[in-house]
Design a protein around this nucleic acid. Structure first.
Length: 426
RNA sequence: GGAUGGGUGGCUGAGUGGUCGAAAGCACCGGUCUUGAAAACCGGCGAUUCCGCAAGGAAUCCGGGGGUUCGAAUCCCUCCCCAUCCGCCA
């Protein structure tokens, strides 16, 4: 959400930013609406001033025992004008708000321009791509051969884009989740939170999923919504609050299931558990002072990278282009892990600085200790990381010729010392 | 699901239809006192928006919306939210 005052002062920068997102200029129409609304407000306020003065006069005359009939009649004529002006001002204000609520955040200066992911910029790589003496299989082949990954029965009970893990694979997913949570809380200073995964509409509006992306979400018969990411509850922790500036930055992490309708996915990633309606993910959220958010994004990205490094998984860091970024983000780094089964880097984490975009929508502010004024916080979110995709990465990168899977050393304490998942013996 | 009670400033909490944006306390900021600190005392201290170069002025806001009235935190209607008790339940 944008501040009208900023658009008024920087209409060209506003349109230029939207253009980088591939959107048509809006400044002219928005400013036109704004001007009409303010003219209306000025008229309304003048009428209200007159009414207030007259009403006060009536009160004084009545108190003094004088006749006020003439004044009451004069005020009566305002009674028609005021509600009309009020209604018009409200309508224009609502129209303006609706238009602004649909506009995405503007890209930061360092974000490369481009229409889609082809314009993303690779920043760095970490780790060696694994070399196999055999043809590596993908996680579906591996998991089904182990008989620990079942897409038939999940389809029967829930439909497409669900999976059933069992035995050692189910435990491996749980171990990965616990490993990540321990890393983010004990070593990176994030506070563990166990939040609701059903939320009100207002929470999703605050983080920017609504009103525009309702099709990507599941909602319940009682009007609540399943979270598509723990970014929603974690960021909304500070909604409608005023933080003491001294407590910032706040850093939260949560392990939750995430639910996505994948309405626009079409036939993409139909095979395997890359793109599920339900998956579990460790999420990181930071709430910072405005001047701290850029550095916080770098740090948060390192916190996500640490997961892959500890597990010895090769990955690359990509700076998303203006056309590939999410709605609320002003700058995003994706972590893409190497998947031997696809011979490709695939997204496993996405870390974004949202600036004050979400804070404005959810009215999340802090009291600046130096100046005493109220300011909007900055919010950041990142996966730290997606557990389902991490499971895939471990399986595919640590597979052996016989279909067994070696457990990375860092994970063994979380699996009771288990060092490999043995191939099925038949 | 049933029954009550509530939603007022950063927090707690008063409020008779008419200078109520709102008492009081706490918190916070400034000052006096003190070697320093604390205490005490004095003073200050809401948000948003509009007009204005500024000084400043104005409007709105007591959960949201509507109504009654010359005038609503206060009366009426409605919706939302919260709490407590009972029932059910992991």
């Amino acid at each position: 959400m944008f501040a009208m005052a900023w658009i008024r002062e920087h209409p060209d920068a506003f349109d230029a930013g939207l253009a980088r997102r591939g959107l048509a200029p809006q400044a002219a129409t928005v400013l036109g609406l704004d001007a009409r609304r303010r003219k209306c407000l000025t008229d309304l306020q003048a009428a209200q001033t007159e009414r207030n003065a007259a009403s006060r006069e009536i009160g004084m005359r009545k108190a003094a025992g004088d006749d006020a009939a003439e004044l009451i009649q004069r005020v009566g004529s305002l009674k028609q004008a005021i509600p009309e002006l009020q209604e018009r001002a409200d309508r224009l204000g609502a129209e303006l708000r609706e238009q602004l609520a649909e506009l995405p955040n503007l890209p930061a200066d360092e974000v490369p321009d481009g229409p889609d992911e082809r314009a993303n910029r690779e920043l760095r790589r970490w780790g060696e791509l694994p070399a196999f003496a055999f043809e590596p299989r993908d996680h579906v082949a591996l998991g089904e051969a182990l008989r620990l990954m079942d897409f038939q029965r999940s389809a029967r009970m829930s439909g497409a884009r669900f999976v059933i893990l069992s035995g050692a694979l189910a435990r491996l997913e749980r171990a990965l989740a616990t490993f990540m949570m321990d890393l983010q809380t004990e070593e990176h200073g994030y506070q563990e939170v166990s939040p609701p995964t059903l939320v009100r509409e207002a929470a999703l509006y605050g983080t920017g999923q609504l009103p525009k992306f309702a099709d990507d979400l599941f909602h319940t018969t009682d009007g609540r919504w399943l979270i598509p990411t723990a970014e929603v509850p974690l960021t909304n922790l500070v909604a409608d609050e005023i933080q003491d500036g001294a407590v910032l930055p706040l850093r939260y992490t949560a392990l939750t299931p995430c639910y996505r309708a994948e309405a626009g996915a079409g036939g993409r990633d139909n095979r395997g558990m890359i793109r599920m309606h339900q998956f579990s993910k460790v999420e990181l959220v930071s709430v910072t002072r405005p001047e701290e958010s850029e550095a916080e994004l770098e740090q948060m990205t390192r916190c996500a990278e640490a997961v892959l490094q500890r597990l010895g998984l090769a990955y690359r860091v990509v700076l998303l282009s203006s056309g590939d970024m999410g709605f609320a983000a002003r700058q995003t780094y994706d972590l893409e892990v190497w998947l031997p089964g696809q011979q490709a880097f695939r997204e496993i984490s996405s870390c974004s600085n949202c600036g004050d975009f979400q804070a404005r929508r959810m009215n999340a502010r802090f009291r600046c200790p130096e100046s005493g004024e109220l300011r909007f916080v900055h919010t950041l979110n990142g996966s730290g990381v997606a557990a389902g995709r991490l499971l895939i990465a471990v399986m595919e990168n640590y597979q052996e010729a016989d279909g067994s899977i070696t457990i990375p050393a860092a994970l063994r304490p979380y699996l009771g010392g288990l060092d490999r998942i043995a191939a099925a013996s038949d």
